[in-house]
């Protein structure tokens, strides 16, 4: 059956099996930034924004979403024109293997869209539902705080150096 879904601002008529998840439908349509990690709504690597709100695409049936708006990572930016959150993830070393990154960037976007200057605790809360096995989450949280600052045009510097170095924060 057909699911008329707006993906990243462009209307699409997705031909789907009625039992097909949005994850499978999006990947079949070429949106490979949506990742398959657990297929039971726990790891967050398949997160997309549904009308601006983070959802696990593995728990949504595509056919049920007729008329809804979906944002995938491809709708946010490209390596040449990255979204400020993507850039902050890259600058703050918030990307290791990168498999969880698109989902986390999208949840961060929903957070910053809702309120421009979240606290660190709010960023951590926004990532509840995303599992990352590489990083320990410190750098992603810093990345979102940095992106928030940049989006608010206040700017922060980041250090790099070779001396004794203390990082990490909560």
């Amino acid at each position: 059956m057909t699911a008329n879904i707006e993906v990243n601002g462009a209307p699409r008529a997705l031909e789907v099996d009625p039992g097909e998840t949005l994850l499978d439908a999006l990947r079949a349509a070429g949106f490979k930034g949506v990742k398959r990690g657990c297929e039971n709504g726990t790891c967050g690597s398949c997160v997309v924004l549904l009308d601006g709100v983070p959802h696990f695409s593995c728990l949504l049936l595509a056919a049920a979403l007729d008329g809804r708006k979906v944002t995938t990572i491809e709708g946010l930016g490209t390596p040449d024109a990255p979204h400020p959150i993507m850039r902050a993830f890259a600058e703050e070393a918030g990307v290791q293997c990168g498999y969880c990154t698109p989902g986390m960037v999208l949840s961060a976007k929903a957070l910053l869209d809702a309120g421009p200057r979240p606290t660190e605790a709010e960023v951590r809360e926004a990532f509840d539902g995303h599992l990352c096995r590489c990083t320990g989450y410190v750098k992603q949280v810093q990345a979102v705080l940095r992106a928030a600052a940049e989006l608010g045009n206040t700017g922060t510097g980041t250090g790099s150096g070779t001396g004794e170095r203390t990082g990490g924060a909560r």
């Binding site: 990572i73 070393a93 990168g98 790099s160 070779t162």
Partner: peptide
């Protein structure tokens, strides 16, 4: 003194990964 080593350079694949480029095993049709 080192110019590149010892500096927190941006990971070379970070932006491609953060923007969801089809880089992984299953990302090819």
């Amino acid at each position: 003194e080192t110019k590149v080593v010892g500096h927190s350079e941006r990971k070379v694949d970070a932006l491609a990964l953060a923007s969801g480029q089809p880089l992984f095993t299953d990302d090819v049709d």
